[in-house]
Design a protein around this nucleic acid. Structure first.
Lengths: 315, 315
DNA sequence: TCATGTTGATAGTAATTTGTGATGCAAAAA
DNA sequence: TTTTTGCATCACAAATTACTATCAACATGA
């Protein structure tokens, strides 16, 4: 049994297709077929049920694949250990970022990071929380930045900062006169939210539910970007909530419509998250310290009330 | 990098000698040398410092060896998973037992076990607790039976039974008249103990220390077997303590000299212990259930006071 | 129904890797 | 100094892995 064979098994298990799996492994299909057969023969069991289309894992195949993931992960970490020892920080690193964090946080640290660690090739992807969790688990991402806590057994979190929400109230709205507003002033029916799947939206839904349990079957507009929401709010269609960092980029005229919450401010916890396997920890730590450096001073908030992305709205 | 190469690295790390390691791996020395060189070249580091005699691990070599152990263990477990799935319980199994448990417990379950699991080849070794812990960790034992708790991070314990201690009081001794005795009646200075290294002895030392803190620099006889202790006690040299199962084999005349402790009886906890790696769990579980079967009825004690083998006497 | 495409298995061969015995060489031991 | 010990190196053999070409099974759809 070789590590290569296990990698082939994992590739087939993932793609449910020998030909495609072979491509991903940079070998021809017969090579991969033979090696799979060889390990099946050595263990004297069938890992894949080739009679089904697409190909299925057998019961024992499931267990073997899960164990093979362990082994391959642990094996990968050897190179990691060596690089860490050499003090080398480099190589490809795939980072996922949720859409509501990407445009504000990325410009703050990217320049610093690539200057400080020129040998790291960062591959950044905008993904929603569910996609991120999936890709962290199957190894297609090395780490990600998302709202936490996730309370996922297989994922570790390092909190980067707390980002409060700020209300955007159009001029003709009742609450516009208030200097500061309270969570109780919010009404889910008039808040414009991002489209489903964005965890930020889930967070806001929780916020409102905790105050007034309104019925869910109301008229709602769902948009993909905050700019749309701001324009809709200006058109008199309601209010919206913006994460603090987003408010910094607004026009002066729009900033007048922002209202801070009274303390404890509702806020989201933003963390660097990565799989428990802890591969490429040097780069993860480099990211953490770089972001911590730029964030320090930019967003320091205490006495905030964390809105968890966890509890999804009732379906 | 292959699993075989890692096994070669582990063999050299263990034996500090290429030639010997090669033998243990059933290959010639050049083969092993070349494979070690290949992995060192691939990782572009030196794992071994060949200038020292005997061969030493480099700093990074240490880390690589520890990670290699993980990988090889996880790899071994694949075969384990397959066998478990097939319901096959067999193969070699190396079991360590401490000397004070071996002669009483082994005859109770060995026959049952080999009848029930004829395909398991049990290799049983009598070892003291320290040796057992060492060999469990380096993989030379699959499991062991010893007094617990050990509180060792890398070792798991399944309690098999609690075995009380019984005092052996010669006729002319003051306490001989009592029907039952108490821990307070014990005096370390007159108790005959097993030679150092036997955890049973450590247990008794703790027992006495907890009652009367006598000075350690007293006349003491240390023997390797309970029979010697009994004879010495009969010669008027003191008293001794015996684990319950040992007392069952005494002559009737000697049984008259036994005195039970009042409850809670001082007792030792006897457990099946094995490394966290959890290899060969089917066999470990087969052992557990077999021993549980014979022990049930033979030794059922409650309200006992466990004497831990952990705290060693002050040096 | 019959071409057609997809997908995995097989065969034969080439390339690579792993292993062997013989030998070299340096350092420690006698 | 001589001998022994212990790892490295070399040339070659065996085994393994990979490739190209081809086949067989099955599904698709005109």
């Amino acid at each position: 049994m070789t590590i290569t064979q296990l990698q082939y098994v994992l590739a087939v298990a993932e793609h449910k297709n020998f030909t495609l799996a072979a491509e991903k492994c940079f070998v021809t299909q017969p090579t991969l077929s033979m090696q799979i057969q060889k390990i099946e023969e050595e263990l004297n069991i069938l890992i894949f049920d080739r009679s089904k289309k697409p190909i299925q894992l057998t019961d024992i195949g499931q267990k073997i694949v899960s164990q093979a993931k362990n082994i391959v992960n642990e094996a990968d970490r050897i190179k990691d250990i060596v690089e860490q020892q050499k003090g080398f920080i480099g190589g490809e690193f795939r980072l996922g970022i949720i859409p509501t964090i990407m445009p504000t946080l990325l410009p703050m640290f990217l320049n610093n990071f690539i200057k400080k660690y020129p040998k790291v090739k960062l591959l950044i992807e905008e993904l929603n929380t569910e996609e991120i969790i999936l890709k962290l688990k199957n190894g297609h991402l090395d780490a990600a930045i998302a709202a936490t806590p996730l309370e996922d057994e297989k994922i570790k979190e390092i909190v980067l900062y707390f980002e409060p929400f700020v209300a955007y109230i159009p001029e003709h709205h009742a609450s516009f006169q208030k200097e500061e507003i309270e969570v109780a002033d919010l009404n889910l029916n008039e808040i414009l939210l991002l489209q489903d799947g964005h965890c930020f939206r889930d967070g806001i839904l929780n916020l409102c539910k905790s105050v007034s349990d309104v019925d869910q079957n109301n008229f709602q507009i769902q948009s993909g970007s905050f700019e749309t929401l701001i324009k809709l709010a200006d058109e008199g269609l309601g209010t919206t909530l913006l994460p603090y960092l987003h408010t910094l980029d607004l026009k002066e005229s729009d900033k007048l419509k922002l209202r801070n919450f009274k303390e404890p401010k509702p806020a989201r916890e933003v963390s660097l998250i990565y799989p428990k396997s802890e591969l490429k920890m040097q780069i993860i730590d480099a990211l953490r310290s770089t972001i911590a450096g730029v964030v320090k001073g930019a967003i320091v908030f205490q006495n905030v009330q964390i809105i968890s992305p966890l509890q999804k709205k009732a379906q």
